[in-house]
Design a protein around this nucleic acid. Structure first.
Length: 603
DNA sequence: ATTGTTCGCGCC
DNA sequence: AAAGGGCGCGAACAAT
């Protein structure tokens, strides 16, 4: 394959550009913190730009950044992964939200989500330009000191040439809907994301938790290590002295092969997996299983959520996550470095995430977001009635589909909840029966043989599915419609695409799941954008008195000065509800939450 | 030694 | 044959 070329490199500032110009831009930095590339650390190596796909202009001093930007102010700016570049550029120059900005990475995801799985610039240059783009030089930047070499300058130049060329091709194929989604949702979301505040952590409390769990881990590890360890032989020494020596290798509870082996040889349990679902049933009757599960629980707390997590805490005792915009195939944002979207629910854990001094947290989450979106996309009048009249979803479903009255938190309630949620995501009766075996068992005749029991459980699951379909014909026909023919594409309510591969055995479940998850993703992005557009935010964000901290898919967390909390809380609530009702008109939007001091509190 | 894959598990 | 979806992270294991 032909290598991507740059005709000319001009070391210096670009000319003044016009409104009709587009310029591909890229920063190179050295000394970025490992795994914290989004944080303001490191030294500027270069800022490069190309507005014709042939010539690259490049500067090396941070003092030149403002003048560079001022010369290209009128043009459309193109980045590949804009949050990185813009986040760093803002360290050296004022760089305010602009409409004429595009991002080849994010636009590629809008165009080809779940069709391609590589979205790096090199892949895009290969796909759109048919050229090879060498990337080896990039590794040198990490620790580079002093001026860039000619080879490195060449690399930086090719980056902006590639970005400019790819953008040109993307603009040829982008649909009107994609364009609207970019302009109205994704571009603003980039700027919103750039302004995420840090989440204050109670470091001492975090350490206490780590210590506590470490003790449990050590105890169980010691006990099991000795009890289930084995004697092995190894060769030691050299020449004539080389001989076999016996040694004791302790059992490692972290090793699934070892756990599996013990279960088989000592307890005659031949399981296909040692995960929670498979071994939990033996928790009360098998001490080994109990120890393993207790161990894993605490081990998780000391590994993922242990002392090493504290490397993410910065000098202000805050954690600044990186929000990866629309990275999931459904368009959800994910959080990394560290991931704050999967913090355990234990109150003790959540208590570590606190409001700063003189501040409050404001948290709202969409209540029953899935059900609302389901009611909208299916047009199911019964679902709409349940939601819009504030009735309890699972209790109503039980009444309508099964003609029974159930109470919250009973076994029957849990089963019906699992059925309803599962149906929206493409669950089959088989899967439903498998995952809810123990609960379903209580509703079949007792004293059956194990084979007859399996059959009875599956029959019950089938029957429940059938009853639901009969009772909710509009939902049933929606499911039927989406799973009978693969149209190749699935859409969010805003029209954001997800490709369904014809030979992917998951296409049916994706076609049911994607509109739900993707619309939820649109909703939360829109809500974040609209929060940022409020007068309140525009006034107080620059003063450091309010900031969005995090979104967790159906939940938005902000931090605000104590004396402004009531006002902001009302705004946040209204913005979130309005967004829901604008995306799913005819469905009453609902949120729950309020003002709190730490993340363990609901409101 | 370094890199990639799998498993298991935390969240919505 | 498999049998709701989407993520990120850490440990172990396998391969280079």
């Amino acid at each position: 394959m032909k290598q991507l070329e740059c005709k000319e490199i001009i070391r210096g500032l670009p000319p003044i550009l016009k409104e009709t110009d587009t310029i591909g831009l890229d920063l190179e930095l050295s000394g970025l913190r490992d795994g914290q590339l989004h944080r303001p650390a490191g030294r500027l190596l270069s800022l490069a730009g190309s507005f014709d796909g042939e010539t690259a202009y490049i500067v090396f001093e941070q003092d030149e950044v403002p003048e560079f930007l001022s010369r290209i102010e009128k043009a459309t700016h193109i980045y590949h992964n804009s949050t990185f570049d813009i986040g760093h550029i803002r360290r050296w120059a004022s760089y305010l939200e602009r409409k004429n900005m595009r991002d080849t990475l994010l636009i590629e995801r809008l165009l080809w989500s779940n069709y391609y799985d590589d979205f790096d610039l090199k892949s895009l240059v290969r796909r759109y330009i048919g050229c090879y783009m060498p990337k080896d030089v990039r590794k040198e930047f990490k620790t580079w000191e002093g001026a860039m070499t000619d080879e490195q300058v060449q690399y930086a130049a090719l980056d902006v040439i590639g970005t400019w060329l790819v953008d040109k091709e993307q603009q040829k194929i982008i649909s009107h809907t994609d364009q609207v989604i970019w302009d109205k949702l994704y571009n603003p979301h980039v700027w919103t994301t750039l302004e995420l505040g840090g989440f204050k952590l109670d470091v001492d409390a975090w350490r206490d938790l780590a210590d506590h769990n470490q003790k449990i881990v050590d105890e169980i590890s010691e006990k099991l290590g000795t009890q289930y360890g084995s004697t092995k032989k190894k060769l030691v020494g050299r020449g004539k002295n080389r001989h076999e020596e016996e040694y004791f290798e302790p059992f490692n509870p972290n090793s699934h092969p070892q756990v599996k082996s013990i279960l088989l040889t000592q307890y005659h349990l031949d399981l296909e997996s040692t995960d929670d679902d498979h071994i939990r049933p033996y928790y009360d009757t098998n001490e080994f299983v109990k120890d393993i599960l207790d161990y894993r629980k605490s081990e998780k707390q000391v590994s993922t959520y242990g002392l090493s997590f504290l490397k993410n805490v910065e000098e202000d005792e805050r954690i600044y996550t990186s929000l990866n915009i629309g990275l999931a195939i459904t368009g959800r944002d994910s959080s990394s470095s560290p991931n704050l979207q999967n913090q355990p629910h234990d109150p003790e854990r959540r208590k570590c995430f606190v409001a700063g001094k003189g501040k409050k947290l404001v948290l709202y989450d969409y209540s029953g977001q899935e059900a609302g979106i389901w009611a909208f996309v299916t047009g199911d009048e019964q679902f709409k009635d349940i939601i819009n009249n504030g009735k309890k979803l699972y209790i109503e479903v039980a009444r309508i589909a099964f003609n029974e009255e159930i109470k919250k938190d009973t076994d029957r309630y849990k089963i019906i909840k699992a059925l309803v949620l599962g149906l929206m995501y493409g669950l089959t009766p088989y899967g439903f029966a498998r995952d809810n075996r123990e609960k379903l068992e209580k509703f079949i005749p007792q004293g059956l043989s194990s084979k007859a029991k399996d059959e009875a459980i599956l029959a019950l699951a089938d029957e429940m599915f059938e009853s639901f379909m009969q009772a909710f014909p509009q939902s049933a026909s929606y499911i039927q419609k989406l799973t009978s023919v693969n149209q190749g594409l699935s859409y969010s309510i805003l029209g954001r695409k997800c490709h369904l591969h014809p030979y992917d055995r998951q296409w049916k479940t994706n076609s049911l799941n994607n509109p739900m998850q993707a619309t939820g993703a649109d909703m939360i992005k829109l809500a974040m954008r609209n929060l940022r557009k409020t007068d309140f935010y525009k006034k107080y964000y620059p003063e450091g008195r309010v900031a969005i901290i995090l979104q967790v898919h159906d939940e938005i967390l902000t931090e605000v000065d104590e004396n402004l909390a009531e006002e902001w809380s009302a705004i946040q609530k209204k913005v979130m509800i309005d967004v829901a009702e604008s995306l799913t008109p005819g469905i009453v939007g609902g949120v729950s939450g309020g003002i709190i001091d730490d993340w363990s509190q609901k409101d």
